[in-house]
Amino acid sequence: MPHDMLTRRKLLKGLGAAALCSPFFAQHTWASANRPFYIDGLSFLPEDINDVKASKLTSFIADISDIEAIKQADGTTNYKRSYNACIKSIKAAKQIVEANPDVYIQGQTGLDIVKAQESGRTAVFFQIQGADCVEEDSAEHWQQLQEFKQHGLRVLQLTHHYGNRFAGGALDNDGVTGLNKPLTQAGHELIAAMNQHHMLIDVSHSSAQTALDTAKASNSPIVQTHGAARSIVNHARCSPDEVIRAIADTGGVFGIFMMSFWLTNNPTPTISDYIKQIDHVVRIAGVDSVAIANDFPLMGQKELIKLNNNNEQGVKQYLDWWHSLRDKNVLGFDVEPKHVVIPELNNIDRMSLIDDALKKARFKSSDRDRIMGGNWQRVINQVLI
Rank of each mutant, 00 (worst) to 15 (best):
F363G: 02
S207A: 12
A18N: 13
G14V: 07
Q72D: 06
S204K: 10
H3W: 10
Q196F: 07
Q144T: 13
T184S: 15
T109L: 02
T77K: 04
W322H: 15
S239V: 11
G374Q: 07
N234W: 05
I39H: 00
D202W: 05
P23K: 13
I39E: 00
N375K: 11
C238K: 03
L331F: 02
R121C: 06
V340H: 05
Q127S: 15
A26R: 15
K53F: 12
D48V: 12
A192V: 09
Y38V: 09
L325N: 11
N309E: 06
Q143T: 14
I61G: 00
Q129L: 14
A116M: 10
S119L: 15
D172I: 00
L307T: 01
S55R: 01
S204M: 08
Q313L: 14
N195K: 10
E47R: 11
L156P: 01
N78L: 03
P23V: 03
P46E: 02
R165P: 01
T268E: 14
R378D: 07
T268D: 11
A92F: 07
N375S: 10
C238R: 02
I247H: 10
H205P: 09
L319Q: 09
S32M: 09
T76M: 07
I61S: 00
T268M: 04
H161F: 15
I275T: 03
H188R: 15
M199H: 03
I292T: 06
F24I: 12
H151I: 00
R230V: 04
L183V: 00
N310P: 02
A116I: 12
Q377D: 10
N381I: 05
G373N: 10
K56P: 04
N329C: 06
H151N: 13
A192G: 02
A208N: 12
R154C: 11
L345C: 05
T122S: 02
K80L: 06
E303G: 06
Q72I: 01
Q277E: 14
K88N: 14
W262I: 13
M259H: 12
L190Q: 01
N311S: 05
L171P: 04
G41H: 03
R370P: 01
G332V: 05
H280D: 04
F261Y: 12
H28G: 08
A248H: 06
P46N: 06
H141D: 12
H205N: 11
H141S: 11
